[in-house]
C-alpha cells in the first residue's frame, strides 16, 4: 500500500498498535513507545490500526496526525475483529520486522526491544509472555483455564496466549493463510508452515490493569475459536479418521445392544415390541453411520479442493552439481 521508495527506504522496525473491541487507549501506548524509541537510533515507523467499531477513536487520533512523525493510520471499513485489524496494520507497514502491541498498557515499551532482538537472532515469529504478572485471582484463573484449553486443543505450549505483543518477519504473514479471528492463530499457523516460532519473556506494564473483565460474548468467542483451532491443527488433512472413529464407536455400541436384544428374542422368547432399548440401539447405529458419512464428505472436500496443493516447504537444498541454495 505504501511501497518503500528510493527516498523513503523501508525501516528496520514497524510497530503496529492495534485497537479492536477490547483495546481503547492507543495514544497512551503510542506516547510511551515514542519516549522509549526517542533514546534509540532505531529506524522505525508506527502504524495505528483500528477496527471499524473503533472508528470514533481513530477520528480523534486523525486530528493529531500532523504532529505524529513517522506514523500511519489504518481504519477498517467494516468490523472484522482483532486478527483482521492486526493484518491490516501489518499490510500497510513497510518495516523488515513487525512488532504488534495492543492499544492498552499491557507490556512495558521496552518489550519491543526484547521482541526485536529475538527476531534479529533468527526467529521468524515471536510470541510474547508477560513475566511476573500482578493480576487479580479472577484473571489468573481465566488465563490459566484458557491457556490449558489452548494447549490441549492445539498441542502448543505458549504460556501467555492473551499477550498481544508479538513480532514477525514481514514475509511470515504473507506466507500464512488468512484464517481465524484471533491473534493466537498467527503463531500456530506460522509454526505449521515451518517457520521458527519462539517465546520471549516480556516485562509487564507497570500500570497494567489488575482486573480485566470482558463481555460474556468475548469469552464465548475465544472458546469457539478454540474449536476452529483444534480442528485446523489436528484434523484438516484426514477428517474421516476422527469422524470414522466416533462413528465406529456409536455403530459398534448400537450393534452390540441390538445383538443382545436379538439373542434374547430368539432364544429366551423375550418380545421386542416393548423394549425401548431397541430404539436406543437403532439410534446409535443410524447416528454412527451418519457421522461416518460426514467424515466422508470432509474427505471429499479435501480431495476436490486441496489435492493439488503443496503440503511442504523446502528450507534448504544441497545440490553440488546444480549449485547450493
Amino acid at each position: 500500500m505504501h511501497p518503500a521508495t528510493a527516498e523513503t527506504p523501508a525501516p528496520t522496525l514497524s510497530v503496529v498498535i492495534f485497537s479492536s473491541r477490547n483495546e481503547a487507549r492507543p495514544l497512551e501506548v503510542l506516547a510511551e513507545l515514542r519516549r522509549w524509541l526517542a533514546g534509540r537510533a532505531l529506524d522505525h515507523e508506527v502504524v495505528l490500526a483500528f477496527d471499524a467499531d473503533r472508528a470514533g477513536l481513530a477520528h480523534g487520533v486523525r486530528g493529531n496526525l500532523e504532529s505524529l512523525d513517522r506514523t500511519r493510520l489504518v481504519v477498517l471499513s467494516a468490523s472484522q475483529g482483532q486478527l483482521a485489524t492486526i493484518r491490516a496494520g501489518v499490510a500497510v507497514s513497510t518495516g523488515r520486522y513487525v512488532v504488534t502491541l495492543p492499544a492498552f498498557p499491557q507490556v512495558d515499551p521496552s518489550a519491543v526491544g526484547v521482541v526485536l532482538e529475538a527476531l534479529e537472532r533468527g526467529a521468524d515469529y515471536v510470541v510474547g509472555c508477560r513475566a511476573a504478572r500482578r493480576i487479580s485471582w479472577f484473571n489468573r484463573l481465566v488465563s490459566g483455564v484458557f491457556n490449558a484449553m489452548v494447549h490441549a486443543a492445539t498441542g502448543t505450549t505458549y504460556r501467555d496466549i492473551a499477550c498481544g505483543a508479538h513480532g514477525m518477519r514481514r514475509e511470515v504473514l504473507a506466507a500464512i493463510p488468512s484464517y481465524g479471528d484471533n491473534q493466537l492463530f498467527l503463531p500456530i499457523l506460522a509454526a505449521r508452515e515451518g517457520f521458527t516460532v519462539v517465546e520471549a519473556s516480556l516485562p509487564e506494564h507497570k500500570t497494567a490493569p489488575k482486573l480485566r473483565v470482558f463481555s460474556p460474548g468475548t469469552y464465548l468467542g475465544r472458546a469457539l475459536s478454540l474449536f476452529t483451532l483444534a480442528f485446523l491443527v489436528r484434523f484438516t488433512q484426514k477428517p474421516l479418521r476422527p469422524f470414522g472413529a466416533l462413528g465406529a464407536v456409536l455403530f459398534g455400541a448400537g450393534s452390540l445392544t441390538a445383538l443382545v436384544l436379538l439373542v434374547q428374542r430368539l432364544f429366551m422368547h423375550r418380545g421386542l415390541a416393548d423394549r425401548p432399548l431397541l430404539l436406543l440401539a437403532l439410534l446409535l447405529v443410524t447416528a454412527g453411520v451418519q457421522v461416518i458419512i460426514l467424515g466422508l464428505l470432509g474427505e471429499l472436500l479435501i480431495y476436490l479442493h486441496f489435492r493439488d496443493q503443496v503440503q511442504y516447504r523446502v528450507r534448504d537444498r544441497i545440490d553440488i552439481e546444480g549449485g547450493m541454495s
Binding site: 516447504r313 523446502v314 528450507r315 537444498r317
Partner: peptide, 10 residues
Amino acid sequence: LIALRLARNS
C-alpha cells in the same frame, strides 16, 4: 546427491 530439508516434519 540432491538433499532437501523440509521446514518442519510434514
